[in-house]
């Protein structure tokens, strides 16, 4: 009981003890590496979202059409490809063969491109498939017919009317992808590209049996997961006035 209390106090004061490996407070290591991970995730999810929404919307305009099938096929391949494999292929092609980008490491914007792209592929595929199917559903809603009868063009209907209606489920999926990236995907991608983020650090901590650092990392990720979930609830309420917060 006393131990549990002491543990709780440590958590609240962010006192996780010293990292055995780095010989400094574990929190310090976490706060040093976390921004790198967040940068990587932000870049990849932003890219995924910005590409997925127009792609899914265009595919939804003509379900079963050429663009729709193309998007669907690429989406399914994207979902099925493991990230470490994709990362290695990207390194082979863009870094080793074409020498456009560095193979790994950290520092410049060029270093960010390949890991962010690798991390973006799975969410990009999932976002695109989701935007497509919910757009198809929304485009069949009677309010879309009303908007068309008002003389609104296709672009405006997609941008203003239907997008708003898929935003809440889309945000929930994005939050989920964000959490999955934080707690899993970054471990793979950061390791492949030697990106000095939290995921890479976690692997190193495990290899060195650094329990205190590991604990600090897990706690941080758990805390962020809760925080993201709360944030999404509030944002959903802002978009859809029918949602009641509990």
């Amino acid at each position: 009981m006393v131990q549990l209390w002491a543990f709780a106090v440590d958590m609240v004061t962010l006192d996780f003890g010293d990292s055995l490996w780095q010989r400094r407070p574990a929190v310090e290591v976490v706060f040093e590496r976390l921004p790198n991970t967040l940068l990587l995730i932000a870049a990849s999810l932003a890219f995924a979202i910005l590409v997925a929404i127009p792609l899914g919307a265009i595919a939804a305009l003509r379900p079963g059409g050429f663009l729709d099938r193309l998007t669907m096929s690429i989406g399914l391949i994207g979902l099925a490809t493991p990230q470490f494999f994709l990362g290695l292929v990207f390194i082979m092609v863009f870094a080793v063969q074409l020498k456009w980008l560095p193979t790994s490491g950290f520092g410049t914007a060029a270093h960010l491109v390949l890991p962010a792209l690798t991390l973006a592929i799975t969410p990009l595929a999932r976002f695109t498939l989701m935007v497509r199917s919910s757009m198809i559903e929304e485009l069949n809603q009677p309010y879309v017919r009303t908007a068309r009868a008002k003389g609104m063009g296709r672009a405006r209907i997609l941008r203003v009317h239907t997008l708003r209606n898929i935003l809440v489920p889309f945000m929930n999926l994005s939050a989920w992808e964000l959490i999955v990236a934080l707690s899993g995907y970054t471990v793979v991608v950061e390791t492949v590209f030697a990106w000095p983020g939290l995921g890479h650090t976690a692997v190193q901590a495990i290899q060195r049996g650094d329990l205190f650092l590991m604990q600090a990392i897990v706690f941080t990720i758990a805390f962020m997961t809760v925080f993201i979930t709360l944030l999404i609830d509030v944002a959903s309420k802002l978009i859809d006035p029918r949602i009641k917060l509990n």
Binding site: Y143, R145, T146, R148, A149, G151, V160, R164
Partner: peptide, 21 residues
């Protein structure tokens, strides 16, 4: 012309309006 010179109202006012606007 649609919505300006010729406009239309529908049977079901419950679903014919965008719920989020």
């Amino acid at each position: 012309v649609w919505g300006r010179e010729i406009s239309m109202i529908f049977q079901d006012p419950m679903t014919s309006l965008n719920p989020l606007m």
